[in-house]
Amino acid sequence: MGLEDINWALIAPLIIVEMILLAVALIDLIRIEETNGPKWVWAVICIFISLIGPVLYFIFGRRQ
């Protein structure tokens, strides 16, 4: 599939929103004092698993 076949105007919002989610997760990760488990592991999970990674962090990583 050639890249020119894709209508980027359609997909761009999806990518931007996912980027925002990732950014929010990482900023929160830096500012928070303590997480469940090591911080760098959560950073890796957030960056390498798109969508699910940040969600997992928000639900399980933040200490309530």
Partner: peptide, 17 residues
Amino acid sequence: NVKWIWVPIVFLIFGIM
């Protein structure tokens, strides 16, 4: 605890994916 940011974003992605 940033729920007001991530929950709407996740629902938005579910809606269009």
